[in-house]
Design a binder for these strands. Structure first.
Lengths: 358, 358
DNA sequence: AAACCATTTGTGTGCGCACACACTTATTGA
DNA sequence: TCAATAAGTGTGTGCGCACACAAATGGTTT
């Protein structure tokens, strides 16, 4: 027995000269405690550095908790299918602790669908929310409502500057997107030491709303600014869904330009670009994209994609639920940010990432 | 209540028409159960897919467990200091569950010291062992003794082929070293597309015993074999501790050769080589090494080291203890191997790895 | 002074499991 | 036939906590 000093509520009660009930009330701020008793107990609590036994704690309560995850529909994009896989794992992991997880999906191309998902979530009055706040404006009103309903929430994948509005998520889980863009640029620079035309391609997404894509581009450009005497020209291209087939748009762009390197800040954009390059027989262009989607890995193997940066959506979701679960069950502290490492994927190491289970 | 089907031992007992004591005996193979009762209980167990509530389980037992970690002395090498940090974290993490962790250290340059540590460990009769089996022969006899004492053990960092000898560790935690060498070669090839002389440098270690270094070299060479029409010459160099100051040896080697790239398969060897390169003003040579040691990171930042591959010793140790603890406490299954992802570190992403806490 | 509150404090039970112990039945030998 | 033994079975307690409920206290009202 060396345990956690072996101090139990019972011991605290004894030392403070009160009953365990009173200690319990102090610990949980349940009120109905005289100022005097409260002081005595708190003093002992501090002195003994009491920490509750987490095991007994969760055995004793047996409450049910409801967590809602709001994310884009997994059928729409393999990236989000990976996120969903993370949620599924988390669901299994936490089922024994009576944590129920509900998924609300929305349409990536339709901000209104996010608002609807948000409304449904609020109506369900969950104990906590995990969300990928893809749409800036809709997210902010949602956060406001969560806040007034006193529902804790965590953001993943997309970091939104909430502090200005005083909306206060427990945590953000994801990459430092700016730095992620810098890593992409660094890799590009290694593969293309000689000056040439570069492109940042925004595919599918409408960039207005998508803060996170801007951040990656900003990082990418920032790196090249710091390359002394840089002769690189970096141009941005937008390929929205409503202007004809994506691949046609990209192919046309390849025809009209003389690109040496392309950076695509999204996972599904990556293989779309790779396909266009393949069709046009322009696999000489250096392509750096995101994530270990099946198609991306194929293009990595064939050499069309030179590097991938891994965002590990599965882990992001799983970790988000974990934080919320521990917060609800055991009142654990949640870090303000969980910034994932910026993982570089090549032909030689992709398998080790695919095999790895957190 | 959707829990784990809500099935408790009590329910099993009821359904099988026996008492909870009998169910308990069946569950833990404690014997003293009639064949008839055992069958009845096992049938219900299967039918209901009963799984014990892990929380209540560990509350109920309150046994003490002793885990010994055998590893090189952390003062000797910063790499092992990181491993020790992992053990310390694990110690904290598992203290509430009455898991005590003892560290036995040995001298990296002295196989006998490993044998001594092994002897002391056996004398202490721990419940489980986590060890970095740096020395092949000494490790094998140790494993034999562990096996006869029925002490489960996990290997980390260095993979030893134990199956031939029928020594059966629960798990190996670490990198696929062969593939790790291939990753290094790939990176080298990206930075040096034009043919030139390459070196694999074995520093400090005496390679005879050190299987893991050979594996990395084998992978490195294997990659270049597959490069079509490769004009690369790869030479191995040994710089043992007993032939004068390491840096002098390396410097001399740099003088006598015309190397374009160097691969160092150890973490401490990496900055030793970088220092020699710096002194000789030969920072043009491409250097690929291992691990986020402070000195390595400095040389990465300055550009002397081009890439690092991260082995995450902290995580390896922490994870090893975690597996053992869950195995002892809850009888959890341990995977035969936990092969870590092969993480590529550059100037732009090292910080994200340093910041990241598992 | 009794009755009535509000406030504060103490007690008891249950969570699901592990394990020690008490108990019952069948078997054997004297 | 009865005690002694072994094999099989059931009961009870505790782990540390949460929470419902009972009890005590002190003050106010009639």
């Amino acid at each position: 027995m060396d345990k956690n000093n072996n101090i139990r509520i019972k011991d605290i009660a004894e030392m403070a000269g009160v009953s365990v009930g009173t200690v319990d009330r102090v610990l949980h701020n349940r009120g109905n405690v005289s100022a005097e008793a409260e002081q005595k107990v708190k003093k002992i609590l501090r002195k003994t550095r009491y920490t509750p036994d987490p095991i007994a704690q969760s055995l004793g309560s047996k409450k049910d908790f409801e967590i809602v995850v709001i994310m884009p529909h997994p059928k729409q994009d393999e990236y989000w299918a990976l996120s969903e896989a993370g949620v599924s794992r988390a669901r299994q992991e936490w089922a024994p602790y009576n944590i129920n997880i509900q998924i609300e999906t929305f349409d990536l191309n339709n901000p209104d669908s996010f608002a609807r998902a948000a409304r449904q979530t609020l109506a369900a009055k969950p104990d906590a929310v995990l969300t990928a706040p893809v749409y800036f404006d809709a997210s902010l009103t949602f956060f406001k409502n969560l806040q007034t309903s006193d529902i804790p929430f965590i953001l993943f994948n997309t970091q939104i500057e909430t502090r200005i509005k005083k909306y206060d998520p427990l945590c953000f889980i994801g990459q430092n997107l700016f730095q992620s863009g810098r890593v992409a640029a660094e890799l590009m620079h290694i593969l293309l030491p000689e000056p040439g035309d570069l492109a940042v391609m925004h595919i599918h997404e409408n960039i207005d709303n998508a803060m996170h894509l801007k951040e990656k581009e900003r990082g990418f450009r920032d790196y090249y600014k710091s390359v002394s005497g840089s002769k690189f020209a970096i141009e941005s291209f937008l390929f929205p869904d409503n202007e004809g087939p994506i691949e046609t748009q990209i192919s046309q762009c390849l025809d009209e330009t003389d690109l040496k390197g392309i950076f695509v800040p999204t996972s599904s954009g990556t293989f779309a670009t790779a396909k266009a390059m393949q069709n046009k027989d322009r696999e000489d262009i250096i392509l750096i994209g995101y994530d270990l989607l099946e198609e991306n890995v194929e293009f990595l193997k064939s050499g069309t994609v030179n590097f991938l940066i891994n965002q590990d959506p599965r882990y992001q979701a799983q970790q988000g639920v974990k934080y919320l679960a521990n917060y609800l069950l055991l009142n654990w502290e949640v870090p303000a940010a969980d910034l994932l490492p910026l993982e570089i994927i090549t032909r030689q190491n992709y398998q080790s990432f695919l095999d790895y289970k957190h």
